Structure formats: structure tokens, C-alpha cells
Simulated scan of single mutants.
Amino acid sequence: GLTLCVFTFALWTVFSYEESEKFNGFPIPKNAEVINSRKGFSSYSGLAVSETKKDGLPLIYRLHIKASGWKKTFQEGALTTYEKDNHKIDVIAETNYLSIGVNKE
């Protein structure tokens, strides 16, 4: 049990995330490389994301999102929408590419 906890904590720390002011506190991978950014939108590369995975996102990232209080409210293909405190964030996960934007609906 303890070994699993230590291992999980190590993964949690290595794959660390920071709450983004731009996206109302939505967690963004710290090691993500920004390849495009404008008001209400950013895209990143250098991440282990894939449209073939469940939700396209690594488990640790999904756990961070959930732990930050975001709830998945919609999913279709590579697009997943998360919601928290009347804020909606669209996440598009494609192979080695992640796009995050403020949902305008």
C-alpha cells in the first residue's frame, strides 16, 4: 500500500500542473510547450496525449483536473468540455497535441 502511495505521489509531482489564470484555474501541464496562444485559447505540444486514449488525456492529468474541481460535462471525439463555477473549458487532445480554450456558449 505504502509503495503504491509513494509511487503515485512521485508521478503526481513529476507530471505537475499549474492552475491557469487564463482558463479560470483549469490545470495546465507545467512541461507543456506553448505553440499557439491568443485570448481565451492556447495549444501545446510535447505532451503524452492521444485521441486514441480514454478522454485523450493521461490518467494523472485527468486526476488533476478532477481534484481541481472540474467536472466533465461533454465529450465527442477528441473534444472534452469541463465545467466549474459557471466556467466551461474545451480540451482537444490529439496525438502529442493539446488545445485548451474557453467555451463561449
Results as ranks from 00 to 15, higher is better:
2 L>P: 01
2 L>S: 15
2 L>F: 12
5 C>G: 06
5 C>A: 13
7 F>Q: 11
7 F>R: 09
7 F>A: 13
7 F>N: 12
7 F>S: 12
8 T>D: 08
9 F>T: 10
9 F>M: 08
10 A>G: 03
11 L>H: 10
11 L>T: 10
12 W>G: 05
13 T>A: 08
14 V>Q: 11
14 V>S: 07
14 V>C: 05
14 V>T: 06
14 V>I: 11
15 F>D: 09
15 F>E: 13
16 S>D: 14
17 Y>A: 07
17 Y>N: 10
18 E>S: 09
18 E>W: 00
19 E>N: 13
20 S>Q: 03
22 K>C: 02
22 K>T: 13
22 K>A: 14
23 F>K: 07
23 F>T: 04
28 I>D: 06
28 I>P: 04
28 I>Y: 05
28 I>C: 06
30 K>D: 14
31 N>Y: 13
32 A>K: 12
33 E>L: 14
33 E>K: 15
33 E>R: 15
36 N>T: 03
36 N>S: 08
37 S>P: 02
38 R>D: 05
38 R>H: 12
38 R>V: 05
39 K>L: 15
41 F>D: 05
42 S>H: 06
42 S>K: 07
43 S>F: 01
43 S>M: 04
45 S>T: 15
46 G>V: 14
47 L>E: 09
48 A>W: 06
48 A>T: 08
48 A>H: 08
49 V>T: 14
50 S>K: 05
50 S>Y: 07
51 E>R: 10
51 E>W: 05
51 E>I: 01
52 T>E: 10
52 T>Q: 11
54 K>Q: 13
55 D>C: 08
56 G>F: 10
56 G>M: 10
58 P>F: 09
58 P>K: 12
59 L>A: 15
60 I>Y: 10
61 Y>F: 13
61 Y>L: 12
62 R>V: 09
63 L>K: 10
63 L>F: 11
64 H>D: 03
64 H>F: 07
64 H>P: 02
65 I>L: 04
65 I>E: 03
66 K>V: 06
66 K>S: 14
68 S>N: 08
68 S>G: 01
71 K>C: 05
72 K>Y: 02
73 T>N: 05
73 T>E: 11
74 F>M: 01
75 Q>A: 09
75 Q>C: 02
76 E>W: 01
78 A>R: 07
79 L>R: 07
79 L>I: 07
79 L>G: 00
81 T>L: 04
81 T>V: 15
82 Y>A: 02
82 Y>H: 06
83 E>M: 02
84 K>V: 01
86 N>K: 11
88 K>G: 03
88 K>C: 03
88 K>M: 09
88 K>Y: 02
89 I>K: 00
89 I>G: 00
89 I>C: 00
91 V>F: 03
91 V>G: 05
93 A>G: 00
94 E>Y: 05
94 E>K: 15
96 N>F: 13
97 Y>A: 08
98 L>H: 06
98 L>V: 01
99 S>L: 06
99 S>A: 12
100 I>N: 02
100 I>C: 05
100 I>P: 04
100 I>T: 02
101 G>M: 12
102 V>T: 14
102 V>I: 15
103 N>T: 09
104 K>L: 11
104 K>Q: 13
105 E>G: 12
105 E>W: 06
105 E>Y: 09
